[in-house]
Simulated assay, not measured.
Amino acid sequence: MSKRIQVDIAGQTLTLFDDDRVLADYRVSTGLNGVGEENGSGCTPRGLHRVRLRIGDGCPVGTVFRGRRPTGEVCDASLVAANPGRDWILTRILWLTGCESGRNRGGRVDTLRRYIYIHGTPDSEPMGVPRSHGCIRMRNLDLIDLFDRIPRGTRVEILG
């Protein structure tokens, strides 16, 4: 059996498969600027990726990350209100690396160097609507569910 993830940009969904059997479907939020691979574009990269690193195992729901490290904060409505416009990276991080040289790996199109993650976001942020800076945002409890089901190296295909 082989677990894999498929992100559908048009449908704003992330599906976890085991071979061809659907294990879970989640609503997500991808790049506000659409799809694209260029560094600095704010777009969600397409193509085949893998989970390079799993970060945050065991951290409380709502743990705030900056530079992939917990800040010691736990996100709540008052923290969000006090920091308008902050790009929240919460709970867990699945850091992606591109597998297609010239498309999403290497040079100005390198997903890993662009710091593209699957990560949690405040509950106040809508799902099913493109709103991120290029990452794939999920509800925190959905992200924990996904995180706990997949190993490092899991294949992630982003369809745009």
Rank of each mutant, 00 (worst) to 15 (best):
T13V: 11
E157G: 04
R149Y: 08
V7I: 15
V7D: 01
G56R: 01
C75F: 03
G34P: 11
R4I: 05
T91F: 09
D76Q: 06
Y115L: 10
P122A: 12
P84V: 12
D20T: 15
T44R: 03
T30P: 06
R68T: 00
G42V: 10
R155T: 14
I144G: 02
N33V: 00
N140K: 01
C135N: 03
I5P: 01
C99G: 02
V7N: 04
R131D: 00
V74C: 05
C99H: 00
D142M: 13
D145Y: 02
C99A: 08
R155M: 13
M138A: 02
T63W: 03
H133R: 10
K3C: 05
V7F: 08
P122H: 07
T63K: 01
R114P: 00
E38A: 15
M127R: 10
M138N: 01
G102V: 12
T154H: 02
T13A: 10
E157V: 12
C59Q: 15
H133I: 01
C99M: 15
R4A: 10
R46H: 03
V28F: 10
V35P: 00
G56C: 10
T63F: 06
R103K: 14
L32M: 11
I116G: 04
V51K: 02
R66W: 09
R54Q: 15
N33F: 12
G107N: 08
G56V: 12
R86T: 13
R50K: 15
R54T: 13
P130M: 07
T154Q: 02
T91M: 07
N83C: 05
I89D: 01
P45R: 00
S132L: 11
G102A: 09
R46V: 04
F17Q: 03
R46S: 09
L53R: 15
I9N: 05
S132W: 07
T30I: 13
R155L: 15
S29L: 08
V51F: 04
V109M: 02
L146C: 04
M1C: 11
R152C: 14
P130D: 04
E157N: 05
T111C: 13
K3F: 12
E38I: 14
H133Y: 10
S101Q: 10
N39D: 07
I158N: 01
T121E: 03
S78E: 15
T111I: 05
R92G: 08
I93V: 15
V28H: 03
Y26I: 02
A81G: 09
S101H: 08
V7W: 05
D76N: 14
V74N: 01
G42Q: 05
E125V: 09
M1Y: 14
R137A: 04
T91L: 02
R113W: 12
D25P: 00
P122V: 12
I158G: 02
R114N: 09
R46I: 07
E38R: 15
N39S: 09
V64H: 03
L94M: 15
H133C: 00
M1P: 13
F65R: 01
G40K: 08
T154V: 15
M138G: 02
N140I: 02
R92D: 06
C59E: 08
G36M: 08
G128A: 00
P130E: 03
R137G: 02
I158V: 15
R69L: 11
R113Y: 10
A10E: 09
G11E: 14
R108M: 14
